[in-house]
Simulated assay, not measured.
Amino acid sequence: MTPELSPERDSLDCFPALLDRVLVLTGPTASGKTQLALRVAEALTDRSVTRDETAPKALAKTAGPSIEIISLDSIAVYRQMDIGTAKPSAEEQRRVVHHLIDVVQPDHEYSVAEYLTAAHRCVEEIWARGNRPMFVGGTPMYLKAILRGFDPGPPADETFRSSVMEDVKRYGIEALRQRLQQVDPLSAARIDASDVRRMIRALEFARHVGTPISHRQHQFDVERSPEEGLVFTLQTPRAVLHRRIAARVERMFAAGLVDEIRRLKQNFAELSKTARTAVGYREVLESSEFAQWQSLPDNEPKLTEPDWSVVAEQILFHTRRLARRQETWFRSFGEMRGIATHTPAESAKANGVPTDDKKAGRDASVEMTARPIEQLVDEMTNVIVNHPIWKQAR
């Protein structure tokens, strides 16, 4: 069922920040968010149960809240997009309650406002059950909206956007920037000179609201201290991320990524822009190899499957670039509590943690040792159970 915008919410209303009501676990792609979130949720559930070894198991009493996970991923909302999104598996979703996964079809352009409407509703319902919501994922725009609030502005005006795009084709991007400079100089200074989409949105906002978007959204740039919230970000060495990303890309192709995309093209006349430009999907969809593969009838034996190595390299490159962009975004949030997933090898040796010296010698950037996940779980749960968000009355 597709979440609808709340009928009582005016399209120009702002979504308030949720920093005081939620837990957040974020980090770059392939940093290990899913597994850590599951372990933390299960650990907190264990802590919240009063155990009386002499009483029947059925009489064990829950003394505190449990965690319910809300996906913080702009692609995981799409059904039938499983292999390329690294969604939690069905078994993982049975271990801990999950929300906002598989909620819309891939041909639906799911807006930030739709996501926030559904997310705020989930938060209210989870608190009403006496539990606590934990947002898990790495979509920066969603994250900022959860931490600091969001002004959705007016609905998209496709006629206006098409008209401005025609002007851009005719007169160039610099003319667009100068036009925005006259209407909203603050936005013109902030927005990258090549970001046509955001410049058009700023013009659209001013046209329909009568106030520059920069005047409406300045409150969303105010950050708060890490101690005020429970916002954790995984900090993983770049070399480790690169190895994990490479392994993930290999698994995606082995699991049938191309066949999944072929089925999407068969089932939907047009994928949404967000769906078709997602890393892993865009590279396949735009490749000549896929055009050739897609043209084969379903009942024809595919004896000469294309070589996907070039496409895989593109996905690898773009996923690494995505991880770097995410890291840059996360560093801009002062609300974060960093969770280091690795320690220097020498420090690890001193603490009796085994290291791979041969591998470390081949690549100095790999002289890091993964911390046991139990340490990460303890680090997070010890902070959470002593924080007012967790300790508030049910």
Rank of each mutant, 00 (worst) to 15 (best):
Leu5Tyr: 08
Glu8Ile: 11
Glu8Arg: 08
Leu12Glu: 11
Asp20Gln: 14
Val24Gly: 05
Thr26Cys: 14
Thr26Glu: 06
Ala30Lys: 01
Ser31Asn: 07
Arg39Met: 13
Val40Gly: 11
Glu42Leu: 15
Thr50Ala: 10
Asp52Ser: 09
Asp52Ile: 00
Lys57Pro: 02
Lys57Met: 09
Gly64Tyr: 09
Ser71Tyr: 09
Ile75Met: 13
Ile75Trp: 03
Arg79Leu: 05
Thr85Gln: 12
Arg94Val: 04
Ser111Glu: 13
Val112Tyr: 05
Tyr115Gly: 06
Glu124Asn: 08
Glu125Cys: 04
Pro133Thr: 04
Phe135Ile: 09
Gly137His: 03
Pro140Asp: 07
Tyr142His: 10
Arg148Leu: 10
Gly149Ile: 00
Gly153Arg: 00
Ala156Thr: 14
Met165Ala: 05
Ile173Trp: 02
Leu176Ala: 07
Gln182Glu: 15
Pro185Trp: 05
Leu186Glu: 13
Leu186Gln: 11
Ser187Pro: 06
Asp192Gln: 09
Ala193Met: 07
Arg201Gly: 03
Val209Glu: 07
Arg216Val: 15
Arg216Gln: 14
His218Tyr: 14
Glu223Asp: 12
Glu228Thr: 02
Arg244Gly: 03
Arg244Thr: 03
Glu250Asn: 10
Ala255Leu: 08
Val258Arg: 02
Glu260Ser: 07
Arg263Lys: 12
Leu264His: 04
Ala269Trp: 08
Leu271Pro: 00
Arg282Trp: 00
Glu283Asn: 05
Glu286Arg: 09
Ser287Tyr: 13
Ser288Ala: 12
Leu296Arg: 13
Pro301Lys: 13
Leu303Thr: 14
Leu303Met: 09
Thr304Trp: 05
Thr304Leu: 11
Trp308Pro: 00
Glu313Lys: 12
Glu313Asp: 15
Ile315Trp: 00
Ala323Arg: 01
Glu327Phe: 03
Arg331Cys: 10
Met336Ile: 15
Ala345Met: 15
Ala350Pro: 03
Val353Trp: 02
Asp356Lys: 08
Asp357Pro: 15
Arg362Val: 01
Ala364Met: 09
Ala364Lys: 10
Val366Met: 15
Met368Gly: 01
Leu376Glu: 08
Met380Arg: 00
Asn386Arg: 14
Arg394Val: 13
